[in-house]
């Protein structure tokens, strides 16, 4: 029983790692641009397909392929910013509809390029860290956990300690006042979109060998990310991370001891409960909504 608990805990840590990467990106985009990016799950999917194309298809070394996936998806984010979100700045539903349109295009491109069926990716490493007979952590999962810790720490440093980060947070808090201080809103929007999309891309790229890659894999990712950012409080990066861990724990344990559908129901109910009791989320303040 203790083994099972420990193993489930490890699985939860792994799940929390990639969920928090996706959710933090979504929060960053929402904070700076004021746009709900429905295509965020598909950016995750695009990152996974970068691995399919480069690592499984062209035999590029895995970590090089991951870096390329990060850049590729980051550029997709820049494209979205320029083509969709900037022209639709004053249209509250516009960004939402445009990102849904973009999502459909990305899905269709994935279907046309790689087919509807899930793709098999050769494992990066078969190594497993065995803590005991039954408690094991595959090294491929450890990569995801390490990447999440490193990237989120780097993001934290960037946002709290560098000038660019200050500018970014300033324009998230009050775009007009930030613009008056000489901060280029367009520039910060670009940076936020690149980082936000890139985080989703790298999460997709790193988990690609561990999950079934298919054109519709973004759906469950975006639902999870929404639950996490609502529970954590829209616009709060710390909240998103804490909520990722909490959600991953609850979801993994309910999946292990009951079943996956029930785990989804529990997750959604938690989100609804937070929306009813404290709509600003556990860590949020009522700034941008």
């Amino acid at each position: 029983m203790l083994d099972l608990l420990a193993q489930t805990g490890l699985n939860a840590v792994y799940a929390a790692s990639y969920i928090s990467l996706v959710a933090v990106g979504l929060v960053l985009i929402f904070g700076v641009m004021g746009v709900i990016n429905f295509a965020h799950g598909e950016l995750f999917m695009a990152g996974a397909y970068a691995i399919v194309a480069l690592y499984a298809g062209l035999n590029v070394p895995f970590f090089l392929a991951v870096a390329a996936g990060l850049l590729f998806v980051g550029c997709l984010g820049l494209l979205m910013e320029r083509a969709l979100f900037r022209p639709l700045k004053d249209n509250p539903l516009g960004g939402l509809v445009a990102s849904i349109g973009f999502l459909m295009i990305l899905q269709a491109l994935a279907v046309m390029g790689f087919g509807v069926r899930m793709v098999h990716i050769p494992p990066v490493t078969q190594e497993v860290i065995a803590f005991s007979e039954k408690v094991r952590l595959p090294v491929a999962r450890l990569y995801v956990i390490i990447a999440a810790i490193v990237l989120l720490s780097a993001l934290w440093y960037f946002l709290k300690r560098t000038k660019f980060g200050w500018a970014l947070r300033a324009s998230a808090q009050d775009p007009e006042a930030a613009a008056l201080q000489g901060i280029s809103i367009t520039q910060t929007a670009r940076i936020a979109m690149f980082i936000g999309a890139g985080l989703a891309g790298i999460a997709g790229a790193l988990t690609a060998p561990l999950v079934s890659v298919n054109p519709h894999m973004g759906h469950s990712v975006i639902v999870t990310a929404f639950i996490v950012i609502i529970v954590g409080g829209v616009g709060s990066l710390e909240g998103a991370i804490v909520a990722s861990v909490a959600y991953a724990l609850v979801h993994t344990f309910v999946t292990t001891f009951w079943d996956g559908v029930l785990a989804d129901i529990v997750g959604l109910s938690l989100m609804l409960l937070v929306l009813i009791v404290k709509p600003t989320g556990l860590f949020g303040s009522a700034d941008r909504a």
Partner: peptide
């Protein structure tokens, strides 16, 4: 196969 792609493009163009 291209239907979702064109549909998505129509959505984006009409909102723009």
């Amino acid at each position: 196969q291209m239907r979702p792609l064109i549909y998505g493009a129509i959505m984006i163009l009409s909102i723009l």
